[in-house]
Amino acid sequence: MIELIEVSKRFTLHNKGGAVIPVMEGASLKVVPGECVALTGASGAGKSTMMRVIYGNFLAASGQVLVDGLDVAKAEPQEILALRRETLGYVSQFLRVVPRVPTLEVVAEPLLALGCDRQEALGKAAGLLSRLNIPERLWLLSPTTFSGGEQQRVNIARGFAHDYPVMLLDEPTAALDTQNRETVLTLIEEAKARGAAIVGIFHDIEARERVCDREINVSDFNQEVAE
């Protein structure tokens, strides 16, 4: 479902005299349906960069980034938007929403964008929010006023609202208490069971060992960079 072939990524900082910062060189990766692969490496090694290259908000300098057959590195914006709507989900570390929109709607939005029936979408959103222990009295409030942990759980609920065949998870269990962490790990296991291909960053080693089938150390893709 995900295949990276000889992907490189560098940043050119035009306002710093055109300094070029190479981050990734010759990165290759393959993830099949039902598999969860963990990206590891020290902070700054390029884990999040690799996730963003797959999601398409970072442009790869060279190579192919195939997600469900579409080369994200070269696809038209319309194709990437359709891919993100239907196939490719991303749970980032930060919740970014239009202020004033109720939490329930924020979570249901990916389903509404797919043209799902409104009641059905809100029902599924409510189910996820309950599982993640967001009290019902908060559902009609905007998550912008929530605590960090609550926002993160809303973000996870939103990311799991639609059954994406491909998922990117950026530290989904960080800052969660034991019970919520357990719920998130169960959600990931359920996604794998239905055949989702997952790439994730987990600093939580136990969580990583439980849900991930293998690890890729992204430092391997920036050896030249370090020297």
Partner: peptide, 10 residues
């Protein structure tokens, strides 16, 4: 793409 232009401007 909006987030590509804002997150990784060329």
């Amino acid at each position: 793409l909006t987030d590509q232009v804002l997150d990784d401007p060329q």
